[in-house]
């Protein structure tokens, strides 16, 4: 009995020590993907230090803001219908849907679609609660919103809280694959809205095309988040799709036959870009249905 007691207390102490490192999504081993030179320089510089490395995805608010600033009009038909909500019956589908609805909510609120924003906010909070995520928004802010339903800054601030609380509470509950699904759901939905809003032949859409192709830089973070959870049967096909998407991103920009001083849009391979748009559409279909 006494030895069993010792074992239990030892286990507890080990677990408590381990808990100090749970925040770290990645340790030094991830420097491998940064290239040999970078790895060598970083390791040399930090040889005497413990380093924690995090890869951060752009949030739905950030991408929605970039879409808005590119000047394209709001399209309600691109949002994931709230009628799909009853179909999300598993934790995985709810986590994905939460990311998707947070993206729709960001897009609607930044485009000052207040009624839609309130409806999607309620859907997001209800989905979060169904996943065991509590107090996504403080009561003081809910009360403030009731008397300020057209306050864009307040609505976007609430969206930011729902997103942060949901993702962080899932991580705190050690539900890392659900957290990853939520993040990827949000990113894919934003990319779907952006790519469905763009016409590759339209000169005035050049800025949005550039913003879409710049998202290639987010793939490193997305791959890292998904790699950690590849054992999950839902995440595995998403990861494979992301790898295919990465190739399309690379092929979208022509590397030769470019005249000096040519516009950015002239460097875009339209055929590949259309494939990229279709790929994102397929990924979104997989996630929301």
């Amino acid at each position: 009995m006494s030895s069993m007691r010792k074992i239990i207390w030892s286990l507890e102490i080990i677990l408590l020590f381990n808990s100090c490192n749970l925040f770290s999504s990645k340790k030094n081993k991830e420097q491998v993907s940064e290239g040999e030179l970078l790895e060598y320089q970083l390791m040399k510089e930090n040889a005497d230090k413990m380093k924690r490395i995090f890869f951060v995805l752009p949030s739905p608010i950030e991408i929605s803001l970039l879409i808005k600033k590119s000047g394209v009009h709001f399209r309600e038909d691109l949002l994931n219908s709230m009628e799909n909500l009853p179909g999300y019956s598993t934790s995985s589908s709810r986590a994905i849907a939460l990311g998707v609805y947070c993206a729709d909510l960001s897009y609607a609120s930044l485009n000052e679609q207040y009624q839609i924003s309130i409806e999607y906010m309620n859907v997001s909070r209800s989905l979060a609660e169904s996943l065991g995520i509590l107090r996504t928004v403080g009561q003081d802010k809910v009360r403030l919103l009731e008397s300020n339903v057209t306050n864009k800054e307040l609505i976007v601030d609430i969206v930011s809280e729902i997103y942060m609380e949901s993702n962080q509470q899932l991580r705190e509950q050690d539900r890392y694959s659900l957290s990853a699904l939520m993040l990827i759901g949000g990113w894919v939905e934003c990319m779907y809205i952006a790519t469905q809003s763009v016409n590759p032949n339209e000169k005035s859409h050049e800025e949005l095309i550039k913003q879409i192709l710049d998202q290639k830089l987010s793939l490193e973070s997305i791959k890292t988040v998904l790699q950690d959870n590849q054992a999950d049967p839902i995440i595995k096909p998403i990861y494979q799709n992301v790898l295919q998407l990465e190739k399309l991103f690379e092929m979208s920009i022509k590397t030769s036959d470019m005249k000096e001083g040519a516009d950015f849009i002239d460097s875009v391979d339209e055929l590949v870009f259309v494939q990229l748009v279709a790929k994102i559409g397929d990924m979104r279909d997989y996630l929301v249905h």
Binding site: K51, V56, E220
Partner: peptide, 17 residues
């Protein structure tokens, strides 16, 4: 974070923002 540790964040930032 412990005093002898370091945190590093990798994130993409976009133009026009």
């Amino acid at each position: 974070l412990n005093q002898d540790e370091e945190v590093e964040l990798h994130k993409a930032f976009f133009s026009g923002q």
